[in-house]
Amino acid sequence: MEWSSRRSIFRMNGDKFRKFIKAPPRNYSMIVMFTALQPQRQCSVCRQANEEYQILANSWRYSSAFCNKLFFSMVDYDEGTDVFQQIRVFRPPNYSGTIALALLVSLVGGLLYLRRNNLEFIYNKTGWAMVSLCIVFAMTSGQMWNHIRGPPYAHKNPHNGQVSYIHGSSQAQFVAESHIILVLSIL
């Protein structure tokens, strides 16, 4: 109750989480928000959710129904990494893939809606062949390997300043190398 008189949301680390949330017996309930608010994480969704969570916690704190049976807390990924490991979350969420998929589905859905009276383009063999060739060229050039491994674009030798666009090993490649192979495949 002393903490709730000062703040509407308690910030927790691993020790506080085990003491106030995991350890029985408790005669109160705790709503916990797991987040990644540190600036280096660049989680815009986390910042927006935090603003709404603050509003909710403040509304509860200043409402007439406020009592000592419900509290709000927060665990930041960088302050309580061990808590995230306890609940089997090993990295902060990244919604860029979900957003890209939603955008793609929206674009395809919009195109089909706009062309609903004339869907002959779906049966166009030349169009499907072009799409297939683009995918094949991108994959054979090593673009998927780049996506998985995240190599640098090129390498600059610190001793002589020379830039290498092709990796010296057969076990690795630079992004520039895959672009070169992609262009050569198309030509």
Rank of each mutant, 00 (worst) to 15 (best):
S5D: 08
T126S: 05
I55D: 12
R47E: 15
V183S: 11
M12I: 05
F10K: 09
R88I: 05
S185T: 12
I9C: 05
T140L: 15
C43K: 03
S170C: 09
Y28I: 01
Q86E: 08
I21S: 02
E52Q: 11
A176I: 00
I55W: 08
I31V: 06
Q42F: 02
F121N: 13
R7A: 14
F20T: 08
C43P: 00
Y28S: 01
C134D: 10
T35Q: 03
Y62E: 11
I9R: 06
G161F: 04
A36Q: 03
P158D: 05
R41H: 03
W145S: 03
W60I: 03
N58S: 06
I186P: 00
K125S: 07
S63R: 05
G127Q: 14
W60D: 03
F72G: 01
I122K: 11
L56P: 04
N118K: 12
A176E: 00
K69V: 13
K22C: 10
N160R: 09
S169C: 07
N68D: 05
Q40N: 13
Q40G: 10
H147W: 05
M30A: 10
F84W: 11
T126L: 04
M12E: 02
M30V: 14
K22T: 10
S96I: 01
E2G: 11
P25W: 11
G168M: 03
I55K: 15
S185M: 13
V108C: 14
M33D: 08
Y123M: 13
Y62N: 10
Q42I: 00
A102D: 07
R116E: 10
F137T: 07
Y53W: 08
T98D: 04
R7T: 15
S141V: 00
M1Y: 11
S141A: 05
F17Y: 11
R88Y: 09
R18D: 10
C43M: 06
Y153T: 13
S29H: 15
R149Q: 10
R18N: 06
H147G: 02
L187Y: 15
M144D: 06
Q162T: 15
R116G: 04
V175L: 07
